[in-house]
């Protein structure tokens, strides 16, 4: 068990190191931060001085080494764009993204399972057909377009919901939350729908297919033959067996909700880490890009590590140390 965990953790660290390496090798293609950092009147001497100061004249491997060395001490440097500590900026921005991801996740899960069951049970009803058709729209329209459409409908035409920002937030010292104010909650609605729509349709279609599959099983037929109530068959017997793959997918999608919040955050000026990253890319703010990418990869690697460990707990075959030939 211990050996397995150690091996898994070691592999994860290796993955992180490789991700960082690839990220740093790409930064030189994003552009040159110096142009953004100095005003129009700068001289060549200023450019050279700053380039030297920032170590941008060194090969990317050296820059990466320096980054790792400092990151190991918990120092991610200063943002080129804002001149503030990257770790502080990330800590300030993360709550916005996590709250948005949380609400969209709930929405995707709730809506997805609910509509999935509905469309599976009433296979040919009008509402099922309508939902299935609409869900195609959800999958095929790009996120930013959905966001803009929602803004024009609910903010400009109807004036019900704000078009940008997080509304009033309550500062808890280490966390800022929009859950405690009316404007904060209102501000969450449109971005959460925009971000969660795709995942919702995905889960819905998954639940529907699984459910249809399960409903064809013998034990369901026998349950019907036993005269059980339809409600009990659908929700107690069928749904439970449907949920296993749904939970696996949801876990994996959670990571991508956070990572792909970038577009939604840009459309709604949502002050989370995704918007921060976009700004960093435009400005070539290397410390912020590096820290963000590392954070996202730690998150993905972490989720996968947990999933692996869960498999280990569930699947007895993996417990035979060293003898199983991998999976």
């Amino acid at each position: 068990m211990l050996a397995y965990i150690i091996r898994r953790v070691a592999q994860s660290i290796l993955v992180l190191l490789i991700t960082g390496f690839v990220a740093f090798s790409m930064f030189s293609f994003v552009g040159d931060p110096i142009e953004n950092m100095l005003g129009q009147e700068r001289t060549q001497a200023d450019v050279d001085r700053l380039r030297g100061q920032l170590g941008l004249d060194q090969p990317f491997v050296v820059q990466y080494g320096k980054f790792l060395q400092q990151a190991a001490q918990g120092n991610f440097g200063l943002s080129y764009r804002q001149g503030r500590e990257v770790s502080a900026i990330l800590a300030e921005r993360l709550p916005a993204t996590l709250e948005l991801a949380f609400v969209s996740g709930l929405l995707a899960l709730g809506g997805g399972i609910g509509f999935g069951i509905l469309t599976a049970i009433r296979k040919r009803g009008f509402s099922s057909n309508a939902i299935m058709t609409l869900s195609l729209v959800g999958v095929s329209l790009p996120t930013f377009l959905i966001g803009i459409l929602l803004i024009f409908l609910f903010s400009v035409e109807l004036g019900w919901l704000p078009s940008f920002g997080r509304g009033e937030v309550v500062d808890l010292g280490w966390w800022t939350t929009g859950f405690l104010t009316v404007s904060g909650l209102k501000a969450l609605v449109l971005p959460a729908i925009t971000l969660g729509l795709y995942q919702m349709t995905l889960i819905m279609r998954l639940v529907r297919t699984e459910m249809l599959e399960v409903l064809r099983m013998d034990y369901i037929r026998f349950a019907r033959a036993r005269g059980l109530r339809e409600r009990s068959i659908n929700f107690r017997h069928a749904l439970r067996n449907t949920l296993v793959p749904v939970i696996t997918i949801t876990g994996l999608q959670l990571g991508s909700i956070i990572a792909f919040a970038i577009i939604t955050e840009t459309v709604f000026q949502w002050p989370g880490v995704g918007l921060l990253f976009i700004n960093a890319v435009q400005f070539v703010d290397i410390p912020v890009m590096a820290a963000y990418l590392m954070m996202i990869s730690v998150m993905f690697v972490g989720i996968n590590l947990i999933v692996d460990l869960l498999y280990f707990a569930i699947d007895p075959r993996l417990r035979v140390d060293g003898k199983s030939g991998g999976h």
């Binding site: 930013f144 400009v156 004036g159 078009s163 459309v267 976009i278």
Partner: peptide, 18 residues
């Protein structure tokens, strides 16, 4: 003062009176 990066959102915020 609020930065709003996306041009469509910026216009929407003005049109909606925000």
């Amino acid at each position: 003062y609020t930065p709003i990066q996306n041009p469509s959102t910026r216009i929407a915020a003005l049109l909606s009176g925000e």
